[in-house]
Amino acid sequence: MKNKLIFILSLFSLLLISCEKEPIPANIETLVYGKIYDSTNDIPIVNEKIKIGEYKTIGVPSGISYIFQGFVDSTTTDINGEYSLPFNTTGNGNLYQIQLDFNEQVHIPNLTESIQEENIGTQKEQNFEALRLYPIDLRIITSDEINQEIHIHKQHPSRQIDPIPALNQNSVRRIWVDKNVENEINFQILTTSPYLNHSITIPLNNTSELYEYQVEISSTDFQ
């Protein structure tokens, strides 16, 4: 029984080792380039940071683990939303990714794109679709004292907004929205079971300028 267990463990270890990929050799130059563009508003996304992340993949019992090795280079988009980013492999990793930072003023559905190994040493075009968001100062007036914290969720694109503390009757939260559509905001009290909800819709405004939108809510609005 003991020998059988040792055999199984040895076989399992060999399987994990076989899943590990060798690092890509050092000093191979690759060029990634492309554009970040908002086709809804027909504008480029300017000064958006693009980074190249390096990873080492190893086999683990649950599958594959990605160990971050560091960022090897970065750049930003120009006035046309375009970028060009050459980088060299370091010899430490076997996977490279194009990564964008989260930006609450720009919605980009896919913030990372892997560079396939066959593209290392070549030129790869990678474009990103984006949506420029515009600011609204949402003023929330509560007409009575609500003894629970109120959580706020914006629907499109989905974002959690800083909650309103209990008993606070006048709060302002800056939110970033798509100016081309109506925007639904959900207020939620989580201390009850089931949770209590109240939703409002900010009408279509189609402006890129900051403005204030005021909403009044009371404890009886929550259902």
Rank of each mutant, 00 (worst) to 15 (best):
S158N: 01
D137L: 10
I58E: 14
S171F: 09
V215C: 02
L16P: 04
E209Q: 13
K179G: 00
G63Y: 06
P135E: 01
I140M: 04
S171N: 05
Q155N: 12
V46F: 00
Q116N: 13
G93K: 14
K21G: 03
I67Q: 13
L138M: 08
I45C: 05
L210Y: 09
L14M: 15
Y55C: 11
L31Q: 08
N170K: 15
D137E: 10
I200H: 02
Y83I: 03
I24S: 01
E212T: 15
Q214D: 07
E209A: 05
Q155Y: 07
H107M: 05
Y55M: 12
N186I: 08
I52V: 10
G70D: 13
Y134W: 07
S18N: 13
P23L: 07
T89Q: 03
T40M: 09
L15M: 15
I189P: 05
V46E: 01
N92K: 14
E149G: 02
N103E: 11
R174W: 02
L95E: 15
G121P: 06
K124C: 08
F12H: 08
N147T: 11
I67V: 08
E82K: 04
P135K: 06
N127I: 02
K4N: 10
I175P: 04
T207A: 08
I108C: 12
Y195T: 02
P109S: 10
N205F: 05
F68A: 12
L11Q: 01
A166Y: 09
V32M: 12
Q126C: 11
I146A: 04
S39Y: 15
F102L: 11
G53P: 04
Q160F: 13
D162A: 02
L133E: 04
N183I: 02
E22T: 12
G59W: 03
V181N: 06
E82V: 05
L100N: 03
K21I: 09
S219E: 00
S199D: 06
D101N: 15
K154F: 11
K21P: 07
T112W: 11
T201K: 13
F187A: 03
E117S: 15
Q105N: 15
E209W: 04
L196P: 06
P61M: 10
I108G: 13
N183T: 00
H151P: 07
S84N: 07
E212M: 14
G121A: 01
Q69G: 08
K124I: 11
P23C: 01
T40D: 08
S143F: 07
T57F: 06
D73P: 08
N183F: 00
G93F: 12
E20N: 15
L95N: 05
I150N: 04
L95F: 07
I141N: 05
N80F: 08
I164K: 12
N41Y: 14
I6R: 05
Q188N: 02
N205A: 10
E149L: 06
I45Q: 06
P109C: 07
E129P: 00
K154L: 15
I185A: 01
I136L: 09
I120H: 09
I50G: 02
F128T: 05
E129L: 00
A26K: 14
